[in-house]
């Protein structure tokens, strides 16, 4: 067993993201948060090492995006001036390539984002890796509290900013989402200097994906409130009801108790008051 406070080996899986408005290639938000988590952990556990890993085709656009991750490692000395690129043709399945690489490299902690911003974006990759490697997986991670004796103590994000504490035996895969701390700035200099170490990765074409119809997302129809009223009067009332979003109600010249009552009713309706 490793002595306490010894550094650990981490692998951060990163992907090429896409800006939600303009669609420009960038660091994927969740993956960048994952790297942020790794960098923070590296600061607390001296001697830790972080490996950046990406599987996919190499193009000018994706390279610029991937260099964004290298730009986060401005504090040199973490061995983080290179990113391992498992080069694959467009449309390949990244899972076998990554699984092969990880089972050879044997990191103790694999950090990924929850979902990719490109392609299928199903969020299956960490699960597939966990199943193949036989490692435990924790999702929705907010923080790593400590790593001791091959056991990591983690905080999992619950809704409303709540947290749950978990212990997981290493090696493990952890997925971060938007609850993890925001990624630090990517600096231009280290990004430009960093190296992409390209090695050919397993090239298995994802045939199934190729058979699907993919189109830009349609706007989902807004669910109509279906009125199953017993009487014609109720149906009429529902149909004639004023649409929401009109100007609000203004209570003027009421006592503070009445005002509080109105607010209380609204809070109660919205269900934000915890009992």
């Amino acid at each position: 067993m490793r002595p306490e406070q010894q550094g650990i080996e981490m692998a951060v899986l990163v992907s090429v993201g896409r800006h939600p408005i303009t669609g420009r290639a960038r660091r994927a938000d969740q993956d960048a948060r994952g790297l942020e988590l790794a960098l923070c952990l590296e600061g607390r556990l001296p001697g830790s090492r972080i490996g950046l890993l990406h599987a996919g085709p190499r193009s000018e656009e994706s390279e610029a995006a991937l260099r964004g991750y290298l730009g986060m490692a401005a504090d040199a000395g973490t061995g983080l001036n290179t990113l391992t690129l498992l080069e694959q043709p467009e449309g390949s399945d990244a899972i076998p390539a990554l699984a092969d690489h990880l089972s050879a490299a044997m990191p103790q902690l694999v950090i990924t984002g929850t979902r990719a911003e490109l392609g299928e974006g199903s969020g299956l990759l960490p699960y597939a890796l966990a199943e193949r490697l036989g490692w435990p997986l924790v999702n929705g991670l907010a923080a790593v509290e400590k790593v001791e004796n091959g056991v990591a103590t983690l905080l999992q994000a619950l809704p409303r900013g709540q947290r749950r504490r978990l212990q997981v035996r290493l090696p493990a895969i952890i997925c971060v989402d938007a609850a993890a701390p925001a990624a630090r700035q990517s600096a231009f200099g280290p990004a430009r200097r960093g190296e992409l170490e390209a090695t050919p990765g397993a090239a298995e074409l994802d045939h199934e994906l190729a058979g699907w119809q993919v189109a830009p997302a349609r706007k989902r129809p807004k669910r109509l409130k279906i009125i199953r009223a017993a009487s014609a009067r109720d149906r009429f009332k529902a149909a004639a009801a004023k649409a929401e979003g009109g100007s609000g109600q203004v209570l003027e010249g009421v006592s503070s108790e009445q005002g509080a009552e109105a607010i209380f009713t609204l809070l109660h309706e919205e269900g934000v008051l915890r009992s």
């Binding site: 800006h19 303009t22 420009r24 960038r26 401005a74 700035q185 600096a187 231009f188 280290p190």
Partner: peptide
Amino acid sequence: LTLERGETPNKAPEVLDNLIATD
């Protein structure tokens, strides 16, 4: 500080990212 260290304070990284992504 910005180009080498990536230490532009407060909201500045967000603003810079916006400039890169949305002009």
